[in-house]
């Protein structure tokens, strides 16, 4: 449990800094005054400007983290995660299609639906009973669906007007700007309910991690359990996308970072660690993206892209170096 105290400390620190830093810097005294009296610039920041944004980032990051961790445990591959396996590209395509054909639904809902559809498609296409290495096929098919969706998205982006295109681009990259307490509450409830669902399936997840043969030997109906777990993980990602947009690489990074920070071994502990790490990554990336350059607010998705791609490269040299040597 010593590791978890590090994670919690880091989370508290990032949350604290996120409230203080940004376009306007707050002093500790401002924040304290806002907290105790409910007046002054500190109160405004807490209640309206940065408070809901930080809360949304924390909860959405945790949902992304849980989702990625379940994917990685189920497919037994550190490179699996909904964001690299077509989910984000599907969400982006759905947003552009909705704008192109004038569909009047909340963008968040559309993004989540698009992601779900892409995930379903990946599942259907990669399902080949009795073939070896199904996890590998699933990851590759996910990549391919992602490529197709982003190709189509670029195509339809060309048919949009400039104003629509910039709106679409904001949704595709993923942004936490102007979140309200409604967003925070929505994702907290969704992540909470789905997290409980995961807790119920914990035994199945632990069995499946041992491999399908052993899991069956332990009395598990493998395919059904797998489908349920993957569905839960995909819904978690969809919930997070609905409030934060398809932010890349958070789900991919959270699992390994959580384990690295806490040294967790049990499935339950690893899921918790991944949730914490996901919250840490998303909140931290958001903080960086709005305080690194004065006067420029980059969308958080650009920052996680800049952080995530080198991470993926490092992971590639390490994870495979071990297997191959």
């Amino acid at each position: 449990m010593k590791g978890f105290s590090t994670l919690i400390l880091l989370l508290a620190l990032i949350a604290f800094l996120s409230l203080l830093l940004g376009e306007v810097r707050l002093s500790l005294a401002d924040l304290w005054q806002g907290l105790t009296t409910g007046e002054g610039p500190g109160a405004l920041t807490l209640r309206v400007l940065r408070g809901p944004r930080v809360a949304t980032a924390m909860a959405a990051g945790a949902a992304f983290g849980l989702s990625g961790a379940v994917f990685q445990m189920l497919l037994r591959n550190p490179l699996a995660a909904p964001d690299v396996m077509g989910f984000n590209a599907g969400a982006g395509l759905a947003v552009i299609l909705a704008l192109a054909f004038g569909l009047m639904l909340p963008m968040a809902l559309i993004a989540a639906l698009g992601g779900l559809l892409a995930a379903l498609l990946v599942g259907l296409i990669s399902w080949q009973p009795g073939r070896s290495e199904p996890a590998l096929v699933m990851i590759l098919v996910g990549l391919g669906i992602g490529f197709t969706a982003s190709g189509l998205a670029t195509f339809f982006l060309l048919t949009l007007t400039d104003a629509e295109a910039s709106e679409a681009r904001r949704w595709i990259i993923g942004s936490l700007a102007a979140r309200s307490w409604n967003h925070a509450a929505q994702i907290t409830v969704i992540a909470g309910v789905l997290g409980l669902l995961l807790a119920v399936q914990l035994r199945a997840l632990a069995c499946l991690e041992l491999g399908p043969v052993l899991a069956q030997g332990l009395g598990l109906s493998v395919e059904a359990a797998k489908r349920k777990l993957l569905a839960t993980a995909v819904l978690l990602a969809a919930g997070a996308v609905a409030v934060a947009g398809p932010v890349p690489f958070v789900a991919l990074m959270a699992g390994p970072l959580g384990i690295g920070l806490t040294g967790a071994r049990q499935p339950a502990a690893r899921l918790l660690a991944a949730a914490g790490a996901g919250a840490l990554i998303l909140t931290g990336a958001d903080l960086l993206s709005r305080s690194l350059w004065q006067g420029v607010q980059l969308p958080v998705g650009v920052m996680t892209g800049l952080l995530g791609a080198p991470w993926l490269m490092w992971l590639l040299t390490r994870a495979f170096g071990k297997v191959e040597s």
Partner: peptide, 22 residues
Amino acid sequence: GPIRLTLAGLAMSALLLSLVNG
């Protein structure tokens, strides 16, 4: 392996594209 190589390419493209975006 195919996954490792494809993901290495994906990571490289993502990095360069993020840089260009920035």
